[in-house]
Design a protein around this nucleic acid. Structure first.
Lengths: 180, 180
DNA sequence: ACGGGCATGTAACTGGTTACATGATTCA
DNA sequence: TGAATCATGTAACCAGTTACATGCCCGT
């Protein structure tokens, strides 16, 4: 429901037309979340269907102005007030590693290596980009980037821990075989 | 494509029937990713449609045994070898905070507070559960929990940073108003 | 006899996403 | 004039998810 609620949040700030929502959405997420224009209109149609937004008839040219309804405002408050549960958000990286754990050790090592290399590359990019954003005074972009840095950092630590635990496991199994 | 590829990974270990996939999937993700049984069958049907898995005719009772095909193995390798891009995985928490940034300060503070309270609660739960899992010797569960801890920890740090930056911004705007 | 877990499946819905068609405006 | 951007919309697809129907088998 992220796109739905995101659009709702933007409309709650002020009524906007469809195309403006697309631009604003990606601007506010510092380009990390790009919407296909069409998606804005499909989402608006669904929001209208559910009574969360309403449209004014076009006045100047083809532009419709969309605004939030009362229940739309309610839905938004509810979304904002409900914390995001990391455990419930299905995480692809965790899944991948946990399942690779059941395959041959080489494959697991490949997964771990590829992911780590990628993460470190990204971390460098972010570190290079950080001061530029700070100079530009774009708070949203700074915070978005900070979030990414912290996450990728957490991922890297986790990958290290995985590698370590797996190495332990293999050492133990070698010892087992040796003492048989 | 997580569910699809996850099921593919399990079938690549050994042929299994549908119900076994459901159990194994949630066991291997340490209960953090529960599948509705029906979803397994719909996903299997789609995998078969795409030629990634094949089914043996039932031998004993109603049980079908599903196995990965050659192209299924290819698709799996590709998935495992492709790193997960954190920046491309749309993150609800970031979106929520960034958009709340555009609303009234009280609402932003509510979002931040709720999320932090929730995260700290979770962190405590995880810390309590950690030694139990270590004793049980369940490597998957341990690693899954570690991932959650690291992520929630990263989230907490980020929330702190957000609060700090927003407080800075408000102090500055107060100063601006004062010097007008 | 019956409740619960094992087992298979289908119909239907949701939200996200894209490809495509259409036309207005703007500016070089 | 013609490309780029602004602007609106629709048809269609995909993966994820759920609710529901069906029946087998096992232990009490």
């Amino acid at each position: 429901m992220s796109v739905r609620n995101g659009i709702l949040a933007l409309l709650a700030e002020e009524p906007r037309h469809g195309y403006a929502l697309k631009s604003e959405f990606s601007r506010r997420t510092a380009g990390t979340w790009e919407l296909n224009v069409g998606q804005v209109y499909t989402t608006l149609a669904r929001l209208r269907r559910d009574g969360l937004v309403a449209e004014d008839e076009p006045v100047d040219g083809p532009r419709h102005r969309w605004r939030v309804t009362g229940s739309g405002r309610g839905a938004l408050e509810k979304w904002l007030g409900t914390p995001v549960d990391e455990a419930a958000s299905r995480n692809e990286l965790i899944l991948k590693v946990l399942l690779a754990l059941g395959g041959p050790p080489d494959r697991l090592r490949l997964v771990l290596d590829r992911q780590r290399a990628f993460a470190m590359e990204r971390l460098q990019e972010y570190t290079r980009a950080r001061p530029v954003l700070a100079d530009a005074g774009d708070l949203s972009a700074e915070l978005a980037l900070d979030a990414l840095v912290l996450r990728v950092d957490a991922d890297l630590r986790w990958l290290d821990r995985c590698e370590q635990r797996v190495a332990d496991r293999e050492r133990e199994s070698r010892l087992d075989r040796g003492s048989r």
